[in-house]
Design a protein around this nucleic acid. Sequence first.
RNA 1: GCGCCGGUAGCUCAAUGGAUAGAGCACCAGACUUCGGAUCUGGCGGUUCGGGGUUCGAGUCCCUGCCGGCGCGCCA
Length: 640
Amino acid sequence: MLGDFRRELASLFEQRVRELYDLGHIAIVEIPPRRDLGDLALPGALQLARELKRNPREIGEEIAADFPRPDWVSEIKVQGAGFLNVYLDRGRVAAGILSAPLLDAGDRDEKIIVEHTNINPNKAAHIGHLRNAVLGDVLARVLRSLGHQVEVQNYIDDTGVQLADVIVGFLDLRGLSAAEIAALDEPFDFYCWDLYSEVGRWYEEDDARLGYRRQTLRELEHDEGERAEIGHLVAQRIVKRHLETMARLGISYDLLTHESAILGREFFTRAFEQLRERQAIRREEQGKNAGCWVMPLAESEEFAGLEDPDKVIVRSDGTATYVGKDIAYQMWKFGLLGRDFGYRLWEETGLWQTVADDGAEHPPFGTADRVINVIDARQSYLQKVVRVGLERLGFDTQAERSIHFAYEMVSLSTAAARQLGFLTEDDDDEAGGLEMSGRKGIGVKADDLLDQLVDKSREEILARNRELAGPQLEELAVEISTAALRFFMAKATTTRVIAFDFDEALNFEGESGPYLLYSLVRVGNIWRRLAEEGLEAEITPDQVAALPAELWQDDLWDLVYAVAQTGGRVRAAGETLELSLVARHALDLAQKLNALYHKHPILQESDEQMRAVRLATTHVFAAGMRTLCDLLGLPTPERM
RNA sequence: GCGCCGGUAGCUCAAUGGAUAGAGCACCAGACUUCGGAUCUGGCGGUUCGGGGUUCGAGUCCCUGCCGGCGCGCCA
């Protein structure tokens, strides 16, 4: 709705400029910073001032005189230096919000693959992984709401060093058999968390032990022997735990892509043929990369200044590097490889996984128009190499549509690091906190944090003397904790490092998930009480449109207008990949609602029309807030 | 050395190139015989890291310097 208004105003303005000055002009339509400056603003006169060598205010007045007035406009004024400020018909906008969905999906049917989570299957998920998964999940929801077809993939590196190290831990450090490993109690991922960091220390004691790692990697790569078998077992159990952790937050996937399947289906062999044919890679005969196949990067401007301008794609022992495999995988995602995975269901749920053999009957996967990889910013360099790889193969459009959704990492605040014993009181404050490290066992496990959030939620519910107990209490506590965590991760700008702090994450006041939920619960309470009093809790768009214009006081309108901007905000979030826009907009709505709540009581209002306009505002708010909660994946309990 | 990201209130952070730079936390003072106080109102708090430039207009764009984080492997 608002988008249409803006487009129409722009074209009317351009027409006026053409009539008056015979100039081609591209009109900008802005939302003014303050309410008294109108609802939409055109700063065109300021831009024209120079060209026409005239006072901008004068130009503004001239354009405003005889400016055509669409019926959704209530007033047009020239203000400030010459801004053309447009005031909307408030009731009409409110009624519009109640009569149509806030997000119009459009008719694009582009298929987008979103890859996220991607946790190494060798230890418990930590809070850094939660940032990735929440961003990926919200992104998928936003893209779907914009009408795209989205396939969510979670990449499992089940042949890499990290998994190998835990296998070494089980076999060579602990001396456990496969049966004993299978019999270990849950939480298995917690057990591995400790084992993994122990293996790191064990290697340091004696370099020769790294031989176990090499042997394990070899067996994993060829999928043969006891170590590979244990690798499957460990990866299976860990992935299961990761999926459970993510399910606690309402995060799910369409497909688990196993690196073992990429190897087993010889994806890289196929990619390698193409890379060689197109001369994107060359074999190095001498120097430090002798015997390797490398991709020369020197000629690309974006790699200017690299110490070593060549990226190794195939090692001297003939195996593919991570980047090599990733290029092959990326080609498959676009349907450029001419080869496919086998697929099988993951433990009989609706989730599929790739397998090396031919698998079972399955729905189609891959072959997307656009690929978005949610991977932290530390991997920007490698993601860039993957994209260049596609370019060198001649797939320019696909390279362009290979998007690295880069977000900054999560570190531990100094306070959190001290609480967990990773820093002592004597350690100096480290700027930006302490970096998490799975290898060193430094971090906050996702499930531990979620448990704390559930405890805190339960405590808060009980403090409000609700007669709630048993499963209902637990369900609500889980919903509130989910909202707290998801909102905490979603509100952060992606380009900023999060210094994780317990006090901040566990705070349910102010800018928090529970604050959002509470605002919706409040309007629900109003409606319920109205019904109890025998008053009307519903209102139709026609009734809203018929309300006298002067009833739409400024503060009510502020909220209505904010809701009207929801569609534009969500579109901007999807286009710029700055998902915090969605979270911040939700926060804005909640703050406005809560302010009104105290100022404009509904139940005690005796004037029927006054009550109706306030009631209409609550419905407009709920429409906006529910939409945003869905996008953010926040549950919306009726009471809390 | 080169590249990417940050530097805004005591702290954590907002601000599609636009009008008087805003929130939350913390601190202080308040909120009607209240639709639930997980709330609200007010107060305190700013040389937007420094220096140039572009622009009618710069926290925002360009150049430069400084500070912090992260990358730049035959690891992933």
